[in-house]
């Protein structure tokens, strides 16, 4: 009851306070500039998460390697990238050309084969991707590692006893089972990443937040334009949440005897019971256990 009252009060404020300027929200909600920013945000999220997941999985496997050097490199990477703020990393990658004006590929202290100017190679997009993706990898590595060690060691033993190599058993046996533990926090990370991309506005990359900032710097309609961003962030987050449900369901194979129904199936089930004729209570003799009360 109290919750309802509070909810009603909030709803009243949101819809009747004229300073929200819902008209302005509607006006800018689907302009090219906002949609472009939204697209950039989604693109950043996807690319950064892909880098994070792939590199994070590699780091997790390295971290669990019996080779101390390989495990050590992974530990060092995670220590460094988790130990510094992501905002600092974004700024760092943006200004990395000041540190290394020339980027080349070659033998250390020997000849260089490929030369590139750092300034032209690392623009705001590349800087944003590097910063977000490499930072995410450090967190994903720990999530994947948690998933891997949650799998019964007997599984690795069985795979090894069949003659599978460490990588084969990791890819075919351990990781698919680790997924059940990895997916929920990864969904979390993806949603978190969607919002973290807004930090990239500091290096003037026009993702969603920077796009609305550019508009309100011109029109001074700060609140309604922030509302535009808020609503878009909520919409994309909701879509991601739904996606997560289906991915989790896919990896529950073989663990639950029966998979949880999808919302669609649940709806169908609900409709079906509505259409079903009500059970005839008279069929049961009065006083029977479980009969009508």
């Amino acid at each position: 009851m109290i919750v309802l009252v509070i909810a009603a009060t909030i709803a009243q404020t949101v819809f009747t306070n004229p300073r929200f300027q819902w008209g302005v929200v509607a006006q800018y909600f689907s302009t090219i500039q906002v949609l472009g920013g939204l697209l950039a945000t989604i693109e950043l999220t996807i690319v950064a998460m892909v880098i994070g997941i792939v590199l994070g999985t590699l780091l997790a496997v390295m971290r669990l390697s019996p080779n101390p050097l390989v495990a050590g490199i992974s530990w060092l990477y995670i220590w460094f990238l988790r130990g510094t703020p992501v905002l600092v990393q974004i700024l760092f990658w943006n200004f990395v050309s000041a540190l290394f004006p020339d980027i080349g590929l070659g033998i250390p202290f020997g000849p260089t084969f490929i030369h590139a100017n750092a300034n032209s190679l690392i623009g705001p997009f590349v800087a944003a991707i590097l910063a977000l993706g490499l930072n995410e990898a450090a967190y994903m590595a720990e999530i994947v590692r948690a998933g891997i060690i949650s799998v019964d060691p007997g599984q690795t033993e069985a795979a090894q006893a069949l003659g599978m190599t460490r990588l084969q058993s990791m890819r075919r046996i351990v990781l698919p089972q680790a997924m059940r533990v990895i997916i929920p926090p990864t969904g979390n990370e993806t949603i978190s990443m969607l919002k973290t991309t807004s930090l990239v506005s500091v290096i003037a990359y026009s993702e969603l937040l920077y796009s609305v900032q550019t508009i309100y710097n011109r029109t001074f309609q700060i609140i309604p334009l922030l509302m535009v961003a808020v609503i878009w962030y909520l919409i994309v987050t909701s879509v991601l949440t739904i996606g997560q449900f289906y991915i989790e369901r896919h990896f529950a194979r073989g663990t639950a005897r029966e998979l949880p129904p999808t919302p669609l199936q649940r709806l169908r089930g609900l409709l079906f019971t509505f259409h079903a004729p009500p059970a005839a209570p008279s069929a049961l003799p009065p006083g029977t256990l479980g009969g009508p009360r």
Partner: peptide
């Protein structure tokens, strides 16, 4: 691995792969 593949092993707790039929 190649040598292990020539020796079969059956475990106390079966250790079947639960995500496979």
């Amino acid at each position: 691995c190649r040598k292990r593949s020539e020796i079969g092993m059956v475990f106390q707790r079966f250790n079947l792969f639960p995500h496979m039929t």
